[in-house]
Computed example of a mutant assay.
Amino acid sequence: MTEIIRSLADLTGRYDAVFCDLWGCLHNGKAAFPAAVAALQNFRTTGGKVVLLTNAPRPKSSVIKQLDGLGVPRDAYDLVVTSGDAAQMGMLSGAVGRKVHFIGAPKDEVFFTDFAEDLATYAATQPPITLVPLNEAEGIVCTGLNDDLTETPDNYRATLLMAKTLGLPMLCANPDIVVDLDDKRLYCAGALAQAYEQMGGTALYFGKPHPPIYDLARRRLAEAGVQADPQILCIGDGISTDIQGGGSEGLDTLFITGGLEAAQFGTDVESPEMAKLEAWLALRQLTPTFAMGRLR
């Protein structure tokens, strides 16, 4: 049974590290949540490590710049691990070939040029990746929609049908279906990958809830000096990404009910109603270890 807690401080001393989601937990795409920032800062002062584990399709350096702009202070976290980082490793290893067609926003083009230190070393040993038109491609790299403020997956139907006809595998750099930018819901790369699979295409995933991003996060924790087999708590508002992913890894989870699913659990976003939460979770056959309205 899921336990509703009041704050992250209620769990002081139980975990060596947290894997914390960004959108809906730490910020809303426009500004940081002060209470969430304070909760992570406090966790670090008690000796815990904070890993910001995000399905952002960009490398960690780009996400850190975004966090700076949103007002997330750097003393609120130790490491950033992104779906983009994990997907870059897949791309560099040739998962969708060396000639790839790119679907994504201009801001995401750094996916092909900006690598974290460990990935840059690996990239230097591999043949180059070349961006080509769809009819010349061996595969697709999808980081999202070109303009997620105005487009939907329907805008990509013809492109996806052509890719399916050509038998191209798709590397999905962000498994999220949607995120909320303040009060506006936006489609992510996961929505395009989902549509592609429904057509019969093949999509490869590297972010939450899939293992590659967790493997990378654990490796970077170890490199940061964290003891072997640490106790880790996964925090997020995505039931099919953060919670399912953490559970599949055998980790405890903290479901933030006031994010993507805020309307499901009563009128007080800060205090989810237990009966509604239990019924909703039962339909999804998932049981987070803990839940709270907003991270604090």
Rank of each mutant, 00 (worst) to 15 (best):
E3I: 08
I4W: 03
T12C: 08
D16K: 02
A17D: 04
A17T: 02
A31P: 04
F33H: 00
P34M: 04
A36M: 09
V37S: 00
L40Q: 03
L40F: 10
Q41S: 02
Q41P: 06
Q41I: 01
T46N: 05
G47Y: 02
V51L: 03
R58N: 12
R58W: 02
L67R: 00
V72W: 03
D78S: 09
V81P: 11
S83L: 06
D85R: 08
G90S: 10
G94K: 09
K99A: 13
F111C: 11
T113R: 11
T113A: 12
E117K: 12
Y122L: 15
A123K: 15
T125C: 14
T130N: 07
L131T: 00
N135V: 10
A137N: 08
A137L: 14
I140Y: 02
N146E: 14
T150Y: 07
P153N: 01
L160I: 01
L160D: 02
L161C: 05
T165C: 07
L166F: 04
P169H: 01
M170N: 07
A173V: 11
I177P: 05
D182P: 10
D182S: 07
D182H: 04
R185G: 12
L186R: 01
Y187A: 11
G190E: 02
A193Q: 01
A195S: 02
A195Y: 01
Y196N: 03
Y196S: 04
M199N: 10
M199S: 08
Y205I: 10
F206L: 06
P212K: 03
Y214I: 11
Y214G: 06
D215K: 09
L216T: 06
R220S: 11
G225L: 04
G225N: 01
G225C: 05
G225S: 00
D242N: 12
Q244H: 13
G245R: 02
E249F: 10
G259T: 00
A262K: 00
Q264N: 11
Q264M: 15
F265Q: 06
V269M: 14
M274T: 14
A275N: 14
A275I: 15
A279R: 08
R284P: 14
L286C: 09
F290S: 07
A291E: 06
M292W: 05
R294K: 13
L295N: 02
